[in-house]
Design a protein around this nucleic acid. Structure first.
Lengths: 141, 141
DNA sequence: CAGCATCCAGAGCGATACTG
DNA sequence: CAGTATCGCTCTGGATGCTG
């Protein structure tokens, strides 16, 4: 299937490469569009929340675990690993007595965090509207 | 019955209910924090993309279907319904020959779209950095 | 054209137990 | 403290076929 190949290979060789004059379609909504790639990474339930906390100040594993309600150890572990892989946070092992690990935001992570702040503000300001809309919709069923 | 579309939103019936005095903690990361509620709604694979297109100009069903690569009819249908419920888009049936339906952004939806634009810009500008970080990480395994 | 119904594979995630 | 490993369920979402 060409689609499989497309997803795997064209990732960033994207529309920047190629000698094509005008791309047949601009494809802002192609499988490999940056927005989609980003959403695949931060669209999960925990990444944004963890990033928010780590952005405030470096954090330890169990500190994060405690502060995010409902976040299990497994998911935190998994989330942190993925974020480190994405270059959003940096992991540092401190040579203390029972070993402690610190997670700090990277410069790249911080730029994302700044951007996400707009989203968080929108959520605070408008989630009420959304919920009202939902109730209204549900009533007319 | 496709119950998946209407994910039961205990949303605010959660801890907002009841007659509890003052929340012992401010809980910016509680289960019902606005950011989490928002992410639960737009964190899926399609909502943001659909919103982006509908924001440009009102769109018809199959128009959206064609322009978003890989989007199936089922998911588009599901996504549109949820977005309408959330008050982000409005659905209008036009009395044409073979019936056509238009989806237009609402004022609320537009404010969200404006906010999301920051995200899309970040994605365009930094997704390359993320991918480079991933490769670097994977190589050191 | 604009959907709905059904089937089911796989991802996501919580619960639990164990380790250095 | 900071994780890893495994099990099993739920939910997402793709494929396919049908309707007004």
């Amino acid at each position: 299937m060409d689609e499989a190949a497309l997803v795997k290979t064209a990732l960033f060789g994207d529309q920047v490469s190629g000698g094509e004059p005008p791309p047949p379609r601009p494809d802002p909504y192609a499988r490999n569009c940056p927005t989609r790639l980003l959403l695949d990474r931060i669209g999960d339930r925990w990444t944004v929340l963890v990033l928010g906390l780590v952005c405030e100040r470096p954090r330890r594993f169990n500190s994060l675990r405690r502060d995010i309600e409902g976040l299990t150890q497994k998911m935190l572990s998994q989330t942190l690993k993925a974020m480190e892989r994405d270059g959003l946070i940096a992991r540092t092992v401190l040579p203390t007595a029972p070993v402690s690990v610190e997670y700090a935001v990277t410069p790249l992570g911080r730029t994302l965090c700044d951007t996400l702040e707009g989203l968080q503000r929108w959520a605070r300001d408008h989630i009420g509207d959304v919920q009202r809309a939902q109730r209204r919709y549900d009533e007319t069923r």
